[in-house]
Amino acid sequence: MKLTTEQIEYVSNYVKSFDIKWYELQVEFTDHMVNSMEEIWEKDPELTFHQVKQYAEDRFGRNGFNAIEEDRTQILRKEFRKAQWNVISEYLKFPKIIVGILLALLIFKASFYFDEPDKFVRNLFGLLAILFIPAFYSFYTNRKIKGKRFLELNISHITFTGIFGFMYWIIYLLNSCKESVQRHPILILPFCCALILGILFLMTGIHLQRKTIVNVKKQYQLIL
């Protein structure tokens, strides 16, 4: 037995009442509920609409919606990290890696013009932090599409939190070996390479976010 448009709308509003803020999950859960209700109703037409809804909800369990949301979040995070590493790995292959190596060597050579190598490294990563500002603004302004929030878009924020954590440990390591860096300037080179890696993470994060926005708009027909 097929649900009417009004009944489907009722189920949709019921799903939203579970404080599921991600639009794609609202759509998915509504579809699951509707399909399950239609299946139950087909087997027992004597049931009322609300009885069928209750039986369908019981299939999910008391915390079924939240559990599915958590599972989907973990899956999307893994997929995003994998996609990001795949893009970065392309830049770490010949011949693209030559550009990264030359840039790291150029930055390393520039460090010789500074009396305090550790301060030079801090300034480099300070510059990387400044580059985060437009990237973070892009993430903030695109967190919604036509007023709807998407979990897949929200996942891209792990790029920003991940790189800030990365920079924290870089500065921590720099402070730990400050005197060694001062005596052996060659130790600056790994920090230069880490800077290039950080830039790659930032660039690929922005690229994947834009790609996700396009895919979401097409999938849910939100293109202007």
Rank of each mutant, 00 (worst) to 15 (best):
S176H: 14
V34A: 01
T73E: 10
L189S: 03
V15A: 04
V216L: 09
P95S: 02
N63T: 11
K148S: 05
F94C: 05
F166P: 02
T161D: 08
C177A: 13
Q219C: 06
T73S: 11
F60L: 07
R77C: 11
M37Y: 03
L189P: 03
R210L: 11
K148P: 03
L106D: 11
C193I: 15
V52D: 01
E39W: 08
K78F: 02
Y140W: 11
L173Q: 13
Q74T: 12
A194H: 03
I213N: 01
L124Y: 05
Q182M: 14
G64K: 01
L153W: 00
D71M: 13
I107D: 09
R62W: 11
D118E: 14
F160D: 03
S89R: 11
K109N: 15
W169M: 14
F29L: 09
F139Y: 15
T161E: 09
F60G: 08
L103A: 14
F160R: 06
A110Y: 12
V216E: 01
V27G: 00
I145L: 10
A67P: 06
E152R: 12
E116Y: 13
W22F: 14
L92R: 00
F60V: 03
N175G: 13
H207D: 09
E42C: 08
I97G: 00
A83R: 07
K93D: 04
L106E: 11
K119I: 13
E28W: 03
L151W: 01
P134Y: 03
D31M: 04
T4E: 08
F164W: 11
A194M: 11
L127R: 10
F191N: 00
F136T: 10
W22D: 15
V216K: 00
N215W: 09
I8Y: 01
Q182T: 11
A110K: 15
D115H: 10
E116P: 06
K119V: 14
K146N: 13
F191C: 00
S36I: 00
M37L: 04
A135V: 07
M167L: 12
K178S: 15
K146M: 09
P95N: 01
K21N: 10
K218Y: 09
L127P: 06
Y55F: 14
R149N: 09
Q26E: 08
A110I: 14
L124M: 14
I170N: 04
A56S: 13
L131D: 05
T159S: 06
V99P: 04
L151Q: 08
Q26K: 07
Q51E: 15
D118K: 12
H50K: 13
K2G: 02
K119L: 15
F120A: 01
P134R: 02
E90S: 09
F139Q: 04
N35R: 10
Q51F: 05
N215L: 12
S17Q: 09
S138W: 09
V87K: 00
P185T: 13
P134D: 03
L47A: 06
Y55V: 10
F94P: 03
I186G: 07
D58C: 10
Y23D: 02
Y91H: 08
I188F: 00
N142G: 08
E69L: 12
N66P: 02
F114E: 09
L208G: 03
Q84P: 03
Y113T: 15
E179A: 12
D44R: 13
F94A: 08
G162S: 09
L195N: 01
R77L: 12
Y113G: 14
S12W: 09
H32F: 02
